[in-house]
Simulated assay, not measured.
Amino acid sequence: MPMVKNLENVHQELMDIARESARLSYTKYTSDDVEKLQNRLRGIDSQYNEGAFGDMSSTSDCGRYEEEGQAQVSNELEKVHKTLHVMLSRIDN
């Protein structure tokens, strides 16, 4: 599915965080390692919460529910959050 440009950038950042978390999961990582990824994810969360993932009030297509790719990026965001949560839960304290 095609995405609008701002979502494409968010998607790429999410995929980069997902790759980094997968790479880390095969090493002896620390909570600091996961926290760095979570901080990057917070930036994306802020954009999402501020509505930067799409202009729902656009009049170019009155029937449009969401920007193209918005649901996909939202699902990816949730998956990365869950992955990082699991990684944190596996750290020996």
Rank of each mutant, 00 (worst) to 15 (best):
H11T: 01
I17M: 02
L41G: 05
E35L: 11
I17E: 02
N93T: 07
K28D: 11
P2L: 08
E35N: 13
E35Q: 12
E66L: 14
N93R: 14
T83S: 10
T30R: 12
M87E: 04
S31R: 11
E76N: 05
G69T: 13
I44K: 07
Y29H: 10
L77N: 09
T59C: 11
S74F: 10
S89P: 03
Y26D: 07
I44P: 04
G69A: 08
R90F: 06
V34T: 03
R19V: 03
E78F: 08
Q72K: 09
Y26T: 11
V4R: 02
S21A: 15
M87T: 07
S58A: 15
N75E: 15
M56A: 10
S58H: 06
S21N: 00
I91T: 06
S60A: 14
L14G: 00
R40M: 08
N6C: 01
M56F: 04
N6I: 09
S21P: 01
L88G: 15
N39K: 14
N39V: 08
E76P: 01
S60M: 14
D55K: 09
Q12R: 14
V80G: 10
N93C: 02
Q38R: 14
Y26M: 09
K5S: 03
D55M: 08
N49R: 14
E78V: 14
V34D: 03
A52W: 03
S60I: 11
H85I: 09
L77Y: 11
E8Y: 07
T27F: 01
G63L: 10
R19Q: 12
L24R: 06
R19D: 11
Q70A: 15
V73M: 09
Y26L: 06
R23P: 00
I91S: 05
L24F: 10
H85E: 15
Q12N: 13
F53N: 04
T59F: 07
D16K: 08
H81L: 07
N39P: 00
L14R: 01
D33T: 00
Q12M: 01
N6H: 13
V80R: 07
T83C: 08
